[in-house]
Design a binder for these strands. Structure first.
Lengths: 227, 227
DNA sequence: ATGATAACCGAACGTCTGTTCTGTGTCAAG
DNA sequence: CTTGACACAGAACAGACGTTCGGTTATCAT
């Protein structure tokens, strides 16, 4: 069913691992020892236990003793942790950025529009709480190499360090934009991601509202380009 | 712990749902009825059962009767299906594209470099099997609005329909590139995603190898820009 | 008052489930 | 041949677990 180089794992070890994955996928809870035995052709529960102990020693699975169905594939073999990140609204040059209420957790709000992101997909240092997403409307962000329809995952922030990409609202131009942020002597430099394009400068005396730091950009190639 | 608009759900319904999610995340298997009771302040197993029945009727959870820990959050509330997509190698203008062997399933190959993608994140029509990913090296793909470090998820293909973004190998220029593909009368037009840039034309008599269709592009804003 | 209904509790029952123990056959080392 | 490690089977046990049932309380329309 599936090619795998056996690393000191016997036929029955493999069968058990495969079954664990398959069963968990189908039922969303782990199988009992007897169920493992039935499906892998092992007639005795003690032998299943015997193999599970070995797999645990090899670090392939984790077990919670005394707990029914307390078996799980360990680490990378298990299904990875996912995050539901709400899409709070559109982002476009002319539109003000959606307000976010930091007191409310939007997680589990299945009514809202949202994207699921595997935690492993986030930048390594990102904890993952409080993230939100915006959907880019129009092509005003092409200088950030971000296109119409892209989804921008962000972390709320009102300040930024040099070199971070931020979503800013420029009251001066009445415009929202995504730029790399640099603090210079008496001005801010907002640098487009596209190196062929010129930065915007904002005096420190002028207003500039940082709304969040960009964590990820996701582009789905849904429909073909119509040109 | 978490603000939510109760939709005909009482305090205890909520507590149970929250606990289900939390417990499943921590243990990767569902709690028993008694565990639910303990953590939600319900002293009788029958009352937990009572609430679980209601939640099932409302479609919030699914139950497998008679099976220990046979409770799971249903649909969107559960942890979404994820796909492990192998990163087969780099993609850069000068480099040939990595060869892919369609006979081997790379899934579950935890040794290989890979990204986890929630199935819901894929374009809707995408089945999700056979996908692979490439990591963009260098800035030669900026005309496709794809930057150094971006991850391109692709489906193997040797042909494409008009308007689809493809990875092509141009033997003429000894170059790999990502472009929107258009078949015209006697030539192929390879259109950059950036509308300000000009297309490449390839005569139909000239060789052109389509390696795959681009399904997604993922950009992690890992480290700040150093300029 | 009355009855219906929903929310809740405690106990008991039977089965599911992990564990443990005894025993068997195999195979290679001594 | 003996020994010991290993893979395996079956049975039995204790506790975990889902289910069911009798009973209590509070609310509310009749």
């Amino acid at each position: 069913m599936m090619v795998r180089k056996s690393k000191g794992l016997g036929e029955r070890h493999q069968r058990i691992l495969d079954f664990l994955l398959e069963y968990q996928r189908e039922n969303r809870y782990p199988p009992s020892i007897r169920e493992i035995g039935n499906k892998t052709g092992i007639t005795s529960t003690s032998v299943v236990n015997y193999y599970l102990d070995q797999l645990e020693k090899k670090g392939m699975i984790e077990r919670d003793r005394k707990i029914s169905r307390g078996v799980r594939l360990s680490g990378l073999n298990g299904s990875p942790d996912t995050l539901r990140i709400p899409i709070l609204g559109p982002i476009a040059a002319g539109l003000p950025l959606p307000e976010l209420d930091p007191n409310v957790s939007y997680m589990n709000d299945s009514e809202a529009n949202a994207v699921d992101i595997a935690r492993s997909l986030l930048p390594s240092k990102e904890k993952g709480d409080n993230l939100f997403a915006l959907e880019v409307k129009g092509s005003s962000m092409i200088d950030a190499m971000i296109n119409d329809g892209d989804i921008v995952v962000m972390r709320p922030a009102s300040d930024a360090r040099n070199g971070e990409m931020v979503a800013v609202w420029l009251p001066r131009d009445n415009e929202a934009t995504l730029k790399y942020f640099f603090k210079e002597k008496d001005r801010y430099r907002l640098q487009p991601a596209n190196p062929t394009m010129k930065p915007i400068f904002v005096k420190k005396s002028e207003p500039l509202e940082i709304k969040g730091k960009v964590v990820m950009v996701i582009r789905r190639m849904d429909k073909p380009l119509a040109v």
